[in-house]
Design a protein around this nucleic acid. Structure first.
Lengths: 338, 338
DNA sequence: CTGAAAGCGCTTACAG
DNA sequence: CTGAAAGCGCTTACAG
């Protein structure tokens, strides 16, 4: 590893001259400059980031806190990672990946040891302890998600409460009055996974306002057996269901469609079907109407916001920005049959 | 951010004493030690990693080079990330995520600026330029994959050539003589994605040896329309196909099963079906026989190997370790019908 | 136009 | 049992 001394020796100048040539912060005689550049090139010299950081310069690294819960849908994680990493790179930032169950100490560790300039939070809970920890840290935090204890962080997310309301309004307009909402698996709701809970609760509340009954059932699994069992239970409790909303994924919805067919129910003539909080079903054999997560848009905005803060353009911690959800029609929502 | 000076002042000792208390490299009088610990706790002191690194200590960070190609199957990336991050953490290492199209400069940059102690390569090509770059860098590289220019790196992977051979041997034993192999989408094969190519080529070669015809077709997409078109072409070229091998994913295989059913073909009575290089279809409506990638096992071993190198226990760059693939039976492989 | 030197926050050989 | 000081590789105010 060539250091600044090596370059200086080779070019026959002082180390400060090398430094100034590299940074361009001082005008250097063309000839000298050229000698230095040449030496640096020959030695493959890159200034040590650690030495720079020690002097107080930014590390140009962002911590990405990605909790892993039993209900985490790995298959979609990469979309967020990619969106975040790509956007961050545009600003010259790298991503330090923290995959953990509960990330409080992890965050404290990487910040207090000076490894990162800022923090991105993924998979936020309704009450997220990381948002508390963030208050004690001296780098800004942007949550990709909207915790209710949002006062110590910046938050960017889709407006999942609005999504919940709009799903029900759509259903109502089509004449549906008895709706089944199929939730994700595991302890997502008990833990308080923020978007699932917000969307569900807003849907249930809007249903109550409009006189639409919304029966919620979380999934025990996405396999065929789980799906059938859930449908058996739901229809025995409420035989007049005319619509199903899924907060699940492509594979589950696929299975659900087969299970409905097995029951002799046609979509959308006999029963309407849509996804909410899904990650896209367009690739599926039978895509469904959906209001998807929009990782790319949300993540880009999250990084942009963090940059605004890091560049000193804003200091309004607690700021929350909610983006509008989108409705994608695929023909699986219809008027209530009879 | 409290520094070592603050702690020293608060405890009324010199900074070297604080350092020795933190590291435990010198015996300190119990009372002094306690005062220092107390002060450190009160100030929330964590030694600066940058200062340490500057003195030549390891950064405890590993670079993870994750190329993004047009054919990259995002949905499975997270599995590798998670397996790698989890294993690395066990050794106290964090992961610096590099998501890029071609990562040569990225690797040079993070290494020469002193950000990482080692490198992990994902999604390796048959001839991977990153393996060339690795030779010029002074930290070790472990490829999760097996490039043919493996002399500058350590390689860990499933034995995909063996997988290709075993798939054909299995088919042969069941009487199949005309086989369709459905490949991944995009430029995966042109680019030379190492495992896809190795598995396919070994299968074709073994087929030639045994007198089994293996027709290979890469996918134009995983949607229903693509699948049907591919089947139309394949059957018109070879009406006697009795088996299909898929180097694709769950969603594609799902669609394929529907398409076969539409053609009036039963699995496995009329046609046998299996996946190779897949990421698991157990969750699917109709799981298939498969020889899957095994991210968790391969990634764990890759990290272990990198640690062996970093700890100085081995210095045999170019070492290649291939793990045995596994066969998972789900009842979609049968004797050739007639 | 360029250089000598202080200092960032640590660790560790040297001294007592 | 503990402290003063050198040095890791940089940047930048100070000097010429």
């Amino acid at each position: 590893m060539a250091g600044i001394k090596d370059v200086a020796a080779r070019a026959g100048v002082s180390i400060s001259t090398v430094s100034y040539v590299m940074s361009g912060k001082r005008s250097i005689k063309a000839a000298t400059k050229e000698r230095v550049m040449q030496a640096a090139r020959e030695l493959g010299y890159t200034p040590s980031l650690n030495a720079r950081t020690l002097r107080g310069e930014p590390t140009k690294v962002l911590a990405l806190s990605s909790p892993i819960h039993d209900y985490t849908d790995y298959s979609n994680y990469a979309l967020f990672f990619f969106a975040l990493a790509t956007r961050a790179k545009r600003y010259g930032y790298d991503i330090l990946l923290l995959m953990h169950e509960y990330g409080d100490q992890e965050l404290t560790r990487v910040v207090s040891s000076g490894m990162v300039d800022g923090i991105l939070l993924l998979d936020v809970l309704m009450v997220d302890s990381r948002a508390e920890v963030a208050k004690t840290l001296d780098v800004p935090t942007v949550a990709v998600g909207y915790p209710s204890n949002s006062d110590g962080v910046y938050s960017v997310d889709l407006d999942f409460e609005r999504m919940g309301r709009e799903v029900i309004e759509k259903a109502y307009a089509l004449g549906h009055r008895k709706i089944l909402m199929v939730g994700s698996t595991g302890f997502a709701y008990e833990d308080g996974s923020n978007y699932l809970v917000r969307c569900r609760d807003a849907a249930v509340k809007r249903g109550a306002d409009l006189g639409v009954s919304v029966m919620f059932k979380s999934s025990t699994g996405y396999g065929m057996a789980d799906v059938k069992l859930l449908l058996d239970e739901a229809f025995s409790e409420e035989p007049d269901l005319s619509m199903i909303i899924c907060q699940t994924n492509s594979a589950h919805i696929q299975n659900l469609q087969v299970a409905l067919q097995d029951r002799g129910l046609r979509v959308p003539q006999d029963i309407s079907l849509m996804g909410a909080c899904t990650y896209g079903t367009a690739q599926s054999t039978r895509p469904v109407d959906e209001m998807p997560m929009q990782p790319s848009q949300v993540c880009s905005r999250a990084v942009d916001l963090l940059m605004e803060v890091l560049e000193g353009h804003r200091r309004d911690v607690g700021y929350v920005e909610l983006m509008s959800p989108e409705y994608l029609a695929r023909g699986t929502m219809g008027l209530r049959g009879n």
